[in-house]
Amino acid sequence: MPVAQPPLEISEDLERFSCSYCGTEQIVKRAGGAVWLKKIETAVRDVQKGTDRTAAELALVRLERELEAARESREKLIREAQAKRNLAQARRLMQCLIPFAAVFLIGPLIILLLDESFSGLSIFVWLAACVGVPALAFQSIKVLPIDIQPALAEIDGRIAQIQERMEMNRSILDAPPA
């Protein structure tokens, strides 16, 4: 037969106690003349859930900023690489225009000095040189590729990490409160 326990007496100054029978720590709550007990573990768990939700809300704000900064960094890297490529191509074209201008302007003078008459052959040679010399210059000048793939992979990895952490924090916020 179980032993009857004496009734629990809770004095006005008691805010917390440990059950001598089971050892569970309890918090004494009072409101409107009523007194009830709440396990400390439950109270701590409730506080932890509230803290986790607050931390998740704050983390989402910070992670949104980080994600935007990472995306801007990615776009900037792509823009800068394209600008460098465009500049290199423009330089290549300019370096081809110089020989063209030289052949186009100086060619007739050379023909006059050497031939004194503009024969069909000399005009053909001059026109071929106007096309051929710049074409050779164009082929000899290479625009080196700009390899941004490692940097893009690093940024994309960082974006994926941020999005993963955001999902984790959203799941904390989407969980029903206890």
Rank of each mutant, 00 (worst) to 15 (best):
E68N: 13
E68P: 08
A69D: 15
A70N: 04
A70T: 12
R71Y: 04
S73W: 12
S73N: 15
R74S: 03
E75Q: 15
E75L: 14
E75M: 14
E75T: 13
K76E: 14
L77K: 00
L77P: 00
I78N: 02
I78K: 07
I78F: 08
R79D: 12
R79I: 10
E80K: 09
E80Q: 12
A81S: 06
A81R: 01
A81L: 00
A81T: 01
Q82K: 14
A83L: 10
K84M: 09
K84R: 13
K84W: 08
K84F: 06
K84G: 04
N86A: 12
N86M: 09
N86D: 13
N86Q: 12
L87R: 10
L87E: 12
L87D: 11
L87K: 09
A88L: 03
A88N: 07
Q89L: 15
Q89M: 14
A90H: 12
A90L: 15
R91V: 13
R91K: 15
R92E: 06
L93H: 11
L93P: 02
L93V: 13
M94T: 13
M94I: 14
M94H: 14
Q95F: 15
Q95C: 15
Q95N: 15
C96K: 01
C96S: 11
C96N: 00
L97A: 14
I98Y: 08
F100A: 09
F100W: 11
A101H: 07
A101K: 05
A102I: 10
L105P: 01
L105S: 05
G107T: 03
G107M: 01
P108H: 01
P108V: 02
L109V: 09
I110Q: 01
I111S: 07
I111V: 11
I111N: 08
I111T: 05
L112I: 04
L113F: 10
L113C: 06
L114S: 07
L114R: 06
D115S: 09
D115K: 07
D115T: 06
E116W: 09
E116M: 07
S117Q: 11
F118M: 02
F118Q: 05
F118Y: 08
S119D: 07
G120H: 09
G120T: 10
L121T: 11
S122H: 10
S122K: 00
I123H: 03
I123Y: 08
I123A: 04
F124I: 04
F124S: 13
F124H: 12
V125Q: 06
V125D: 05
V125N: 03
W126N: 01
W126T: 00
L127D: 05
L127M: 13
A128M: 15
A128N: 06
A129D: 10
C130A: 10
C130P: 03
C130G: 02
C130R: 00
V131A: 15
V131E: 09
G132N: 04
V133S: 03
A135V: 10
A135Y: 13
